[in-house]
């Protein structure tokens, strides 16, 4: 990539020390997001998607901690910043959108108070300037009658409207990066598309990078430029969204794609990946996916594959390794 990536994550490792040993929840995860690019992160629950996002914004709940790797935001390393410096990154340079707009806003404060408070935490503005900016933002995210609604309480807004407010909050200091953690999961299907379109448009206009965490492949297909598939704390495959969806290299990704219903699909039954993702306490030796993989062979049970280039993607699978190309069938 010629330009500096908005976000660059290198070998990120997140650990949870417990009484029975240390759990590695995110293991050796690396990826870049370019300015204006949307990177989708998909995977089952517990694959480490949300934790990766939480680690980047520096809000891991103790005892969880970043145990290794680097997080670089526009050329500045941020994973080792002191507490107070990190606070100024949050909200200002990294915005975050959570899953449930119904619970993301404090019920006791007016919507405007929450936006103004956030603006003034990051930008040198007076109360009046911040209020004017808050109204502009609300108009921009499509709130009708923003000048009136700014004095409403969160409970007076519908779910979709609240997620728009949350978007306005995430964007209010023009961040370089937005981490959207399941931003549409709690919304009606008809609203989902609107919110996703809005998120995409706003970020493209501003050249904001987006890390879109979801388990909804439909959302990814519509929105993301590239997609990373996570499994048991590691990236299984990362590549351009079309390639990953149409011709995935990793058997897990193929299984994941096979489990999406499609309107044109001729199959009555969706394919299903047998078994379930291993617990963090019992990640198998070799490739973490090998017990569920229909193509597993000896090497998969002995050695853990790293990401290897294949076509325009990277996949962590021995099937794509040059010397075992013949094993692919």
């Amino acid at each position: 990539m010629p330009e500096t990536p908005a976000l660059s994550v290198r070998n990120l490792r997140v650990e949870f020390p417990t009484r029975r040993g240390t759990l590695v929840a995110v293991d050796d995860v690396s990826f870049d997001i370019a300015p204006g690019e949307v990177l989708g992160i998909v995977g089952e629950s517990g694959a480490g998607k949300s934790l990766t996002g939480t680690a980047i914004i520096g809000l891991l709940e103790p005892p969880g901690r970043v145990a290794g790797g680097e997080i670089v935001l526009n050329g500045q390393r941020i994973d080792n910043l002191p507490r107070e410096a990190m606070r100024h990154i949050r909200g200002k340079r990294i915005g975050m959108v959570f899953q449930d707009p119904l619970t993301s806003l404090n019920p006791l404060y007016r919507v405007g108070e929450q936006i103004i408070e956030t603006i003034r935490a990051h930008l040198p503005m007076s109360e009046r300037e911040a209020r004017a900016r808050a109204i502009e933002l609300l108009i921009e995210v499509g709130i009708q009658g923003a000048e009136r609604r700014i004095d409403g309480y969160p409970h007076e807004f519908s779910g979709g409207m609240r997620q728009r407010v949350v978007l306005a909050l995430a964007l209010c200091a023009e961040p370089d990066l937005i981490i959207a953690d399941e931003p549409t999961t709690a919304l009606d299907v008809s609203i989902q598309a609107q919110i996703i379109q809005l998120l995409k448009r706003l970020c493209q206009e501003r050249g904001t990078a987006v890390m879109l965490i979801t388990h909804d492949m439909g959302v990814i297909a519509e929105t993301a430029n590239r997609v990373a598939v996570m499994y048991a704390g590691r990236i299984a495959e990362i590549g351009p969204v079309r390639e990953v969806i149409k011709s995935a290299h990793h058997p897990y990704t193929r299984g994941l794609m096979g489990s999406i219903p499609s309107i044109e699909g001729t199959n009555d039954r969706l394919t299903q990946i047998p078994g379930s993702m291993p617990r963090l306490t019992a990640i198998p030796k070799g490739c973490a996916f090998n017990p569920r993989c229909p193509h597993a062979f000896d090497r998969c049970r002995r050695e853990r594959p790293d990401l290897m280039p294949v076509d325009h993607s990277l996949a962590a699978c021995w099937l794509v390794a040059p010397q075992s190309a013949e094993a692919r069938s």
């Binding site: 809000l59 909200g91 959570f98 619970t103 956030t118 935490a121």
Partner: peptide, 14 residues
């Protein structure tokens, strides 16, 4: 533990 506190931290409030 609530989301709005997590979100308030994510907004960079002190």
């Amino acid at each position: 533990r609530t989301d709005y506190i997590k979100f308030a931290r994510a907004r960079g409030l002190g």
